[in-house]
Amino acid sequence: MCHKVNQIMDGLFLVIPAFNESSRLGNLLEKLANKYNIVVVDDGSNDNTYEIAKSIKKKYPNNIFVCKHFLNRGVGAATKTGMADAIAHGAKYIITIDGDGQHDIKDIDNIVRPLTCGVADVVLGYRDFHIMPFSKKFANKMMNIVTRIFYNVNVRDSQSGFRGYKSDIIPLLKIHSDRYGAISEFTREIKTNNLKFEEVEIQTIYTDETQAKGTNFKVGLKIFFKMISDFLRGKY
């Protein structure tokens, strides 16, 4: 029987990697701040993403934590930093969510539920590919196939950043990539460590800004060559 999670008291943390999200981050944090513990990681932004996060922290000093990379290292690195910081603050469950507001915050409870019910160690949010722009749909479908071939893991959305993890499995995950390839590596580590996982459908909010980021054909190619390089070097 699952118990309802009182998010702020029961060790649930949101980890939000953010790069140049000054126009969207403040709005996102305002919606989340009075319900969740949040770790924001500014990944070396050259706008005022960090200052915006700090200003929200002043309003919610006990449940918002802001880390800053003084150089841009990539979403994988920022996610790893955020997870480590969340664990340092006593996180039992960690939900990663993109800082550009493309994820519907109502889906957070759907991601959390399998974790708190003990059904899963990892919860993967999957997007409806039918409503994606063509280039993103193609790139994401190809990445699903490549993830299946290289990592022998069959998931509906290998590139979604909206995921949930139990904190105690985080130290088991060996993630080498700092950039977008890290998302695929997180997927690989599910298989490597025989973790229980669930997939939950999530809504995606596409705007001009969110469409400019994420996995497209060029990013997909880079991830693919990185996978080949890691495979040839016996990294997995």
């Binding site: 990681v41 934590f65 880390c67 800053k68 003084f70 690195a77 930093t81 910081d85 700092d178």
Partner: peptide
């Protein structure tokens, strides 16, 4: 990777110390 490890360590240390 070493640069990222260093930056991660500094980011967390700075945040925890400030907290």
């Amino acid at each position: 990777q070493d640069i990222t490890s260093l930056i991660t360590h500094l980011a967390i240390e700075e945040e925890v110390n400030e907290d």
